[in-house]
């Protein structure tokens, strides 16, 4: 399988990169690790005329802990996040999520966190070769006007956001720094996602994700990530969940739950805070309630966009949500990092 032709640039600094994005506009794509983008290009899903490589941008390849928390450059490799001791110690949920992405030799040493967050949505009818797609009408995402993943069809695209790192980062209130030639904006990570299947990111064509900012760990907080897949490796999630639990004196004071792989963007469960606040951390009855909420919320979104049945994935939302919340609560109380907890 060959790649279609394109021009390649390897800017030496961020400024040059943003200049290039600005001048090429929508015909251009950022090339990070390429483990998502190049597959899509081989399948003929995108055909950028220009690729702008992040390879030489050392300013985007740095991960460091500051007083405010964790600062992760968009081009930091997944393996560098896993190897970074503070992540292992204080952000076990992030560690779990990054570790769960694909498999080491597929993308851990070349794939980046920015690429993981900015990967396009997926659908079993869309993420296929030209040959496969040619047998059907063009779907919404490919520029047509139908959706095969939604029962009875739909005028919207029902692809799913498959980023494994997004749910946990959103649960931890991470922010992202977005830059263009003329502007820098910082916003909560969840605002990166548009919930529009056809164009799932809110980035403009000349913009680039440059940094992810994760708040500093607070005493009494715990995080966890859960992923359900048929196989223990390679697979995209059928359902995933990122959970953050803040406790004080054994009671939950703040909590977030974000479900991944089921909707067009990471799905924040709104009721979780109301139900769990001031309850004893890890209270199974309360967590069960939230898990049911999560399942019901997700049910409105889950489409037949993976080969696994919709009903099964829907039901599993409750199980995966519950497990993530329970483990996050355990960690909040025990205050153990990923490696210690093992």
């Amino acid at each position: 399988m060959r790649l279609p032709p394109f021009a390649y640039d390897r800017p030496r600094d961020l400024y040059e990169a943003l200049e290039l994005l600005n001048s090429y506009g929508k015909d251009c794509k950022v090339l990070a690790g390429g483990t998502d983008l190049l597959v899509r290009m081989k399948q003929g899903l995108v055909a950028p005329t220009h690729l702008v490589s992040l390879k030489a941008l050392s300013e985007l390849a740095e991960i460091k802990e500051t007083g405010d928390g964790l600062q992760i450059g968009a081009a930091v490799k997944l393996s560098d996040i896993l190897a970074y001791q503070p992540v292992q110690d204080h952000w076990p949920g992030l560690f779990e999520a990054v570790k769960a992405i694909g498999a080491p030799s597929i993308q851990h040493f070349s794939g980046t966190i920015g690429g993981n967050l900015c990967q396009d949505n997926r659908c079993q009818f869309y993420d296929q070769s030209k040959f496969f797609r040619a047998a059907r009408q063009t779907c919404n995402k490919a520029g047509g006007s139908t959706c095969f993943a939604w029962k009875g069809g739909s005028d919207k695209c029902h692809s799913a956001c498959q980023s494994d790192s997004a749910p946990i980062l959103i649960a931890m209130d991470a922010k992202v720094v977005i830059k263009s030639k003329n502007e820098t904006r910082t916003m909560p990570l969840e605002e990166l996602y548009s919930s529009v299947g056809e164009r799932p990111l809110t980035l403009a064509d000349n913009e680039m994700l440059t940094e992810i900012l994760v708040p500093a760990p607070t005493p009494g907080a715990g995080t966890a990530f859960e992923k359900l897949a048929y196989r223990s490796s390679i697979d995209y999630a059928m359902v995933s969940a990122g959970a953050f639990v803040q406790t004080e004196g054994g009671r939950t004071t703040r909590v977030r739950l974000v479900i991944g792989a089921v909707a067009r963007g990471p799905l924040s469960i709104a009721t979780v805070e109301k139900t769990l606040k001031n309850r004893p951390a890890g209270d199974q009855q309360a967590i069960n309630e939230v898990a049911i909420d999560a399942m019901n919320t997700a049910a409105a979104f889950i489409a037949n966009n993976m080969t696994q049945p919709v009903e099964y994935r829907t039901k599993m939302v409750s199980v995966i949500a519950k497990r993530a919340l329970t483990r996050a609560a355990e960690r909040a109380i025990s205050q153990k990092g990923f490696l210690e907890a093992k």
């Binding site: 390649y8 390897r10 390429g34 390879k55 040493f109 070349s110």
Partner: peptide
């Protein structure tokens, strides 16, 4: 470091 050569541009290996 192990990488997929089918998903790596030759130029990226420069």
């Amino acid at each position: 470091k192990p990488v997929r050569s089918c998903l790596t541009l030759a130029l990226e290996a420069s």
